[in-house]
Amino acid sequence: MHEMGIAQNILEISVEAARKEGASKVIRINLIAGELRGIVPMQLTFCFGIVAKDTMADGAYLDVEEVPVAGHCKNCNSDFSVEEYEYVCPKCGSPNIELTGGTELRIKDIEIE
């Protein structure tokens, strides 16, 4: 249930950003969540609904955009998506790769009024 703590953080960041703009309400939050973060969108939106109650983000729509795991091979310079958590380059077989996607957990933007 790390979703509850994450929901709380999403709320705090969004409310702070909205306040800075002088807004009175947060209507929508667009979140980017890497696959490796193990976020269950349904659970996260449910938790968010609870923590946002009676705040300026009460009733805000939380959109979770899931990002697949992606890698870059340092050996042959190719970029690829990581399937089935197979952390080797599909082109040259090298395990010398770096992750370029899949670990992010970021609020992209919010809609306010």
Partner: peptide
């Protein structure tokens, strides 16, 4: 109105 936030959720 849409505003860019681009903040890591776990930055705190």
């Amino acid at each position: 109105m849409k505003i860019n936030v681009m903040q890591d959720v776990l930055q705190a």
